[in-house]
């Protein structure tokens, strides 16, 4: 009872106003929205059923394949760039810095168009393996590499200097120390920001539409757009939204668990 009283007492004027506004907006939406139209266009079960097999076996699969491929290549690029940034060799440092600033500064779309169309126009003989999809994945890897390079560098620099000194004074080389002492520790620090990069990358794969695609290489957004214009129905937007969340939410959950487990050694 006492608790209830206190809660009533805490209903200040601000909370009251907030509640009133919310209730009014909800009431207006419920009263004036065309629920039938919304239901048949955004939540149409028949349309959802019709698209589901293709959507899961082609579009969702492609989105995942593009994301994982770009993330892996991007990570390798990023690791190289981060190590170059931290090296004692000035030209390597300058190159890595220029790379990161350039591809972080440009819209990802520009990089994709450059690889898919710019380079074939300029050098008709040059072909990126994998055709248009290959060009798109290369472009996304380059961009992801630029972002992740800074994440990795930050992680490496966050490992205390004494770790390098201790390993070096045991006779381990710089490379050995990096590989078995510094990078494993840096990786822990990098897990949250890298997950972030991965989630951003999942969404960035939707940019691949600019390079053009065939029915077999479509990812989620392109698939939804095609379906929408074919069927004059917006339900695919709802469906792909759910698919995106089904990918990203468990991922962030998994990573949180992983972080807790890795945290044990600390």
């Amino acid at each position: 009872m006492a608790l209830n009283e206190r809660r009533v007492g805490s209903l200040t004027r601000g909370t009251v106003i907030a509640w009133v506004v919310t209730i009014v907006i909800v009431a207006l939406v419920v009263a004036f929205a065309d629920w039938e139209r919304i239901g048949s266009n955004f939540f149409n079960v028949d349309e959802a059923r019709r698209m589901l097999p293709q959507l899961l076996t082609v579009a969702a699969k492609n989105t995942l394949v593009y994301t994982v491929a770009s993330f892996c290549f991007g990570f390798v690029i990023a690791l190289c760039m981060a190590l170059m940034r931290l090296s004692n060799f000035p030209p390597a440092r300058a190159f890595a810095l220029a790379y990161v600033e350039l591809f972080r500064g440009l819209p990802a779309l520009v990089t994709l168009i450059l690889l898919a169309f710019g380079i074939p126009i300029a050098f008709p003989g040059v072909r990126i393996p994998g055709g248009q999809v290959g060009a798109a994945i290369t472009g996304l890897s380059i961009v992801a590499g630029a972002y992740m390079a800074e994440t990795i560098r930050g992680g490496i620099e966050a490992v205390p200097r004494g770790q390098m000194e201790a390993a070096r004074s045991l006779g381990m080389s710089r490379g050995q120390t990096m590989a078995s002492i510094i990078i494993p520790q840096a990786f822990r620090i990098m897990i949250p920001p890298l997950t972030n990069e991965f989630v951003l990358l999942i969404k960035d794969t939707s940019l691949i539409y600019v390079v053009g695609s065939t029915p077999a290489t479509r990812e989620l957004v392109k698939f939804a757009r095609d379906f929408m214009s074919d069927r004059r129905n917006a339900t695919p937007l709802t469906v792909i939204a759910i698919v995106y969340l089904l990918i990203t939410l468990p991922l962030t959950y998994l990573v949180r668990r992983l972080e807790e487990r890795l945290g044990k050694g600390r």
Binding site: P160, G162, Q163, E165, A166, A167, R168, S169, L170, G171, M172, Q176, S180, I181, P184, Q185, R188, G265, R266
Partner: peptide
């Protein structure tokens, strides 16, 4: 450097490795 042991003020053990692994890693690598 393998002939010159060094002990630091801040210990500088490798926190991601067990005590035993702290002692074996350089023996194996170097």
């Amino acid at each position: 450097r393998t002939r010159i042991g060094m002990v630091f003020q801040q210990f500088n053990l490798f926190p991601h490795l067990t005590v035993l692994r702290n002692l074996t890693i350089a023996q194996e690598k170097v």
